[in-house]
Every structure is written in structure tokens, then in C-alpha cells.
Simulated assay, not measured.
Amino acid sequence: MAKALIGFIGGPTADEQRQTARMRRRIADLEAEVLRLKIENDGLLAAVREHLEPVTASDLRERVSH
């Protein structure tokens, strides 16, 4: 029924098509930003791991018992 209504109305207007294209570009930009931030975050985590000594559960128990 929706297809019939869209066909009857005439489909999206030029303004709606421009708005849809603009929103799709914005979504693509945001997805690219999320990917960039994930990559940056992974790099920061790797750098932190390089500078930290591994901590085990027994290390934590020793510190709590003192």
C-alpha cells in the first residue's frame, strides 16, 4: 500500500532527495570519524600497554593484605 501511495503522490520531491543525500553524506562522515577514533584509541591502548607492567591477581591480593 505504501508503494501505491508513493506512486500516487509522485515520490520524493527534489528537496527531499537533496536532504536524503545530505544525510547519507553526514552518516558516511560520521562512520569515517568513528573508524578514525577506533584506530586512534587502539594505538593509544597499545602505547599504554607497552609502558605498563603486567599485573596479576596475586599482585593485587598482596597489595590489599598489607
Score class of each variant (00 low, 15 high):
H51S: 13
E16I: 08
I27V: 06
G43D: 01
A2M: 13
A28K: 08
R25Q: 11
Q17W: 09
D29P: 03
I6D: 11
T20N: 12
I39V: 13
R63V: 00
G43N: 05
R25C: 08
P12Q: 15
A47V: 15
S65T: 05
E16T: 07
L35G: 10
G7E: 02
L5M: 13
L45W: 14
A21Q: 07
P12E: 14
M23R: 11
R18S: 04
R49H: 09
G10I: 05
E33P: 05
I39L: 11
L60M: 05
A32Q: 07
E33Y: 05
P12H: 13
E16R: 09
G7I: 02
M23D: 09
P54G: 15
V64M: 00
A32R: 08
A57K: 13
V34D: 01
G43W: 02
E33M: 06
V34K: 02
M1S: 10
G10K: 09
R25E: 11
F8M: 14
F8A: 14
M1K: 03
R22F: 13
E53G: 12
G43E: 01
Q17E: 11
A28V: 01
Q19A: 11
T20H: 15
E53I: 14
A32M: 08
A2G: 13
T13D: 00
D42V: 11
G7P: 02
R25T: 10
S58M: 06
P54A: 15
T13A: 02
D59C: 00
R36Y: 10
L44D: 02
R49T: 09
R63A: 00
R22K: 15
L37Y: 02
V48P: 04
V64Q: 00
S65P: 00
H66R: 06
E50P: 10
A4C: 11
M23G: 06
K38S: 01
E33W: 04
L37A: 03
V48L: 14
A47Y: 15
V34C: 01
T56R: 01
R49E: 07
E16V: 11
A28H: 03
P54S: 15
A14Q: 09
R26L: 15
R26K: 15
A46C: 14
G10E: 04
G43A: 02
G7M: 05
R24P: 04
L52R: 14
E31P: 02
D59N: 00
R36C: 13
E62Y: 01
D42S: 07
A47W: 13
A28G: 03
H66I: 06
S65G: 05
M23P: 06
